[in-house]
């Protein structure tokens, strides 16, 4: 196997490198990728189209929002998949062998506990900031959602899984995850129902007469980011909770 692997790797590496002299120079602003009308368009017209300074957010949630919707679905699938694979249901014991004795996390340290108590609210606040401020600074639904999920994970690490699950029980996080995707695709369907193509947020201005198309786009982007954050935070916690407890959702690390 080692030899097969080595040969495959050398062959693949050679293949990848063989095209290297055909590459544009590093940092070349006029390489086909950088100078293509597509990326020029994003840089020049984002503001005009939606007034969002962070082009990455604009491209993510608007121009290529279709991709992002499926990206959210991928996250959802990951959570559902882990539950489908690992979750021990029906009260059937998992049959897992007792794990070897570990030192980590067995005792809940007072220092860790206190730190977490101080940290977690800040973390959650920061997560909301990241979600909401994705238009103007790095961040958005994914990053914020992960941080939000991480705050629950931190709870679980510091206090054990059960207290964390009290705050975010299984039924709730599964629902949240689905609702997140519903929010995202709901924005798309709303556009569809108003007679435009899927995810064409501009048309949503008819719902709020005081705004124009660009603003409608901007607000819709925030909306879908919130949907993303719902799914991502719920699923990140779900992944951790299942993996840490071998699918039993008890005990944990």
């Amino acid at each position: 196997m080692k030899w097969v692997g080595l040969i495959a790797v050398i062959f693949t590496g050679g293949l990848l490198l063989s095209a290297m002299d055909d590459f544009p120079n590093w940092g070349d602003a006029h390489s086909p990728a950088n100078a293509s009308p597509v990326s020029q368009y994003y840089i020049e017209k984002t503001i005009e189209d939606s007034g969002v300074p962070n082009m990455v957010t604009a491209v993510l949630a608007d121009y290529r929002g279709y991709d992002t919707m499926f990206e959210t679905v991928v996250v959802l699938i990951a959570g559902i998949a882990i539950m489908a694979i690992l979750r021990v249901m029906n009260g059937v014991p998992g049959g897992a062998r007792p794990s070897p004795a570990h030192e980590i996390g067995d005792q809940h340290d007072i220092i860790i506990g206190t730190t977490c108590r101080l940290l977690i609210p800040v973390l959650q606040l920061f997560a909301l900031y990241v979600i909401a401020h994705g238009h103007h600074s790095p961040g958005g639904g994914f990053q914020g959602g992960v941080i939000l999920g991480a705050s629950f994970i931190l709870t679980a690490i510091a206090k054990g899984l059960d207290p964390a699950l009290e705050r975010l029980p299984e039924k709730r996080y599964v629902k949240l995850a689905f609702v997140g995707v519903v929010i995202y695709s709901g924005f798309g369907v709303a556009c569809l129902l108003l007679g435009e193509n899927f995810l064409d947020y501009g048309v949503l201005q008819v719902l709020l007469p005081t705004i124009d198309a660009a603003e409608a786009r901007s607000h819709s982007m925030l909306g879908v980011e919130v949907g993303v954050a719902f799914t991502v935070s719920a699923i990140m916690f779900a992944i951790y909770a299942n993996l840490a407890s071998k699918g039993e959702l008890e005990g944990g690390l």
């Binding site: 293509s36 009308p37 597509v38 608007d62 121009y63 290529r64 279709y66 435009e196 193509n197 899927f198």
Partner: peptide, 15 residues
């Protein structure tokens, strides 16, 4: 040809 989000021109900015 269906342009998601209505981004039809220039081709390739949308999906």
């Amino acid at each position: 040809r269906y342009f998601v989000g209505g981004w039809s021109r220039p081709v390739g900015i949308g999906i």
